[in-house]
């Protein structure tokens, strides 16, 4: 990406950032949709709440005045399926062995306090684009297991607890919506959601609903 401010430290990607660093520096991320490359800038300043929009469709958002918000259009990224090799737990801990665009996205998921996921629903779950990314996000967890709410779950690495909004479109009926709601309740344990809301809409309503949600973050 061109046009970085003088004095801004550039690093290759967000994931190289030690967790405690976040408290000292201000982190500003930009997503460059065309190349699908995400660049991280660090500026002196206080730690602030990073917000992530992860979407399986392009969104008409103008975010240039909001450096704390990153919008990732997954359709523009090259993300292969997880192959279930567990390399990210046992071989190169915290790093996926498949070096495609997913490795730029899961650090963003880990570092965000607020997330808005926009996805089509299929069979009561996330459709392929979002699900592919979520499967590739397991490097944010350790292989090791702990007990959460009486159930076994993985230990998380430096994953910030999140307030999540899931905007799901294309559900065929209420039964599918109910199943999706239950899925998100389960995901909350594995994805470190401290709170979550699930919203359903038709595909053509997505842009308006996204606007309404980001307006709550002070973005008009």
């Amino acid at each position: 990406m061109t046009g970085c401010n003088p004095g801004v430290i550039r690093i290759a990607n967000a994931g190289t950032l030690p967790f405690k660093f976040r408290k000292v520096y201000k982190i500003v991320y930009y997503c460059v949709p065309l190349s699908g490359i995400i660049e991280c800038k660090i500026q002196n300043g206080a730690y602030f709440d990073m917000k992530l929009i992860l979407s399986d469709r392009p969104l008409p958002l103008e975010l240039s005045d909001h450096p704390d918000v990153v919008c990732v259009d997954l359709t523009r990224l090259k993300i292969a399926n997880c192959v279930g090799c567990f390399g990210c737990w046992t071989k190169t801990p915290g790093r996926c062995v498949i070096r495609d665009d997913a490795v730029k996205v899961y650090p963003l998921i880990a570092q965000s306090e607020t997330v808005l996921y926009v996805s089509r629903i299929k069979y009561g779950g996330y459709d392929t684009v979002m699900k592919t990314m979520l499967e590739r996000a397991i490097p944010v967890q350790q292989a090791f297991i702990r007990i959460v709410n009486g159930e076994t779950h993985h230990v998380q690495r430096s994953v910030v607890p999140k307030d999540a909004v899931i905007l799901a479109y294309g559900a065929s009926d209420e039964e599918e919506q109910a199943l999706f709601r239950q899925l998100i309740a389960r995901n909350a344990h594995n994805m470190n959601f401290q709170s979550y809301r699930v919203l359903f809409c038709r595909e053509d309503q997505v842009p308006d609903l996204v606007q309404t949600e980001v307006a709550k973050w002070g973005i008009s």
Binding site: W89, P93, G94, A110, P139, V159
Partner: peptide
Amino acid sequence: AMQTMQIEP
């Protein structure tokens, strides 16, 4: 090493 808290270290 497996217990690292870092992501994409």
